[in-house]
């Protein structure tokens, strides 16, 4: 079908390349300015240095905030998966009053402005006596992460062949057995994808965290503070390293899945 490049193919390629350029332009700028000699980023760059990487590793507060963010991201995602996957499966299997409403409701935490979600959860936590901090941040993150995990897994489940489920049950498999041996293998990529997206979103979350963190500083909150006062390209450096790690992870997983396919 694509022996020769037709006009429309060329157009699609050009538009897609422009799209990628747009997506990557700011990313490239962030990485480039991690090597800039000047503390304040202005164009053109003033020189090349690695000092910000060195400074970044020595900046214990910054490293600590990254660690805090990773903790929140993994616990939040874990909770969202533990609650979201069975929840999606239950919604898929069962008919119950209010199911339609529930379907709509699960995407709300993701769609609603983080600042409002943050403030409402804060007010609620104050009522029940939970103090700002790591615990409150995890609660807040899990809530909006549910909004990413659940719809993705639910959509995938609905695409499954109903016959699969029935066949499994006809063969006398119990509910748990059906889930672990028939359903889970079929939805594992979407669970994995949802988890990956959750971690990504949690690692870069500001509005919800803003009202819940107290003195527990996550990386985006730390970066936010630093960009407002005391900006240094250490931020660019840490962002570049995170980017590098994510690119490496993508390439490795791609290699692995290619191997699997063979």
């Amino acid at each position: 079908m694509s022996k020769k490049f037709s006009g429309s193919t060329v157009l699609v390629i050009i538009l897609a390349v422009c799209g990628f350029l747009f997506l990557y332009l700011p990313v490239v700028v962030v990485v480039m300015y991690s090597f800039n000699t000047d503390a304040i980023s202005s164009f053109p760059m003033s020189g090349f240095t690695l000092k910000w990487y060195k400074a970044m590793f020595a900046n214990t507060e910054l490293i600590k905030s990254l660690r805090n963010s990773l903790i929140v991201a993994f616990i939040g995602t874990g909770l969202a998966i533990l609650i979201g996957v069975p929840g999606a499966y239950g919604m898929y299997k069962l008919k119950f009053p209010g199911k339609k409403a529930l379907e709509k409701m699960v995407i709300l935490p993701m769609m609603l402005p983080g600042i409002i979600t943050g403030i409402t959860i804060l007010s609620f936590l104050q009522l029940v006596g939970v103090v700002q901090g790591a615990f409150a941040v995890v609660l807040g993150h899990t809530t909006f992460l549910l909004g990413t995990v659940l719809p993705q897994v639910y959509t995938r489940l609905r695409q499954l062949d109903r016959n699969l489920l029935e066949a499994s049950q006809d063969l006398g498999a119990g509910g748990a057995q059906t889930f672990f041996h028939v359903i889970l293998p079929n939805i594992k990529t979407s669970v994995f994808g949802a988890a990956l997206l959750s971690i990504t979103l949690s690692l870069d979350e500001i509005p919800v965290t803003f009202f819940l963190n107290g003195v527990f500083t996550t990386l985006p909150i730390k970066i936010y503070g630093m960009t407002r006062n005391g900006f240094t390209p250490e931020i660019n450096a840490i962002c570049s390293l995170i980017l590098l790690a994510s690119v490496a992870a993508v390439i490795i997983s791609n290699k692995l899945s290619a191997k699997e396919a063979v």
Binding site: V131, Q132, G133, G214
Partner: peptide, 8 residues
């Protein structure tokens, strides 16, 4: 207002 003496 959010944290008060519990936090700061």
């Amino acid at each position: 207002k959010a944290g008060g003496g519990d936090v700061y």
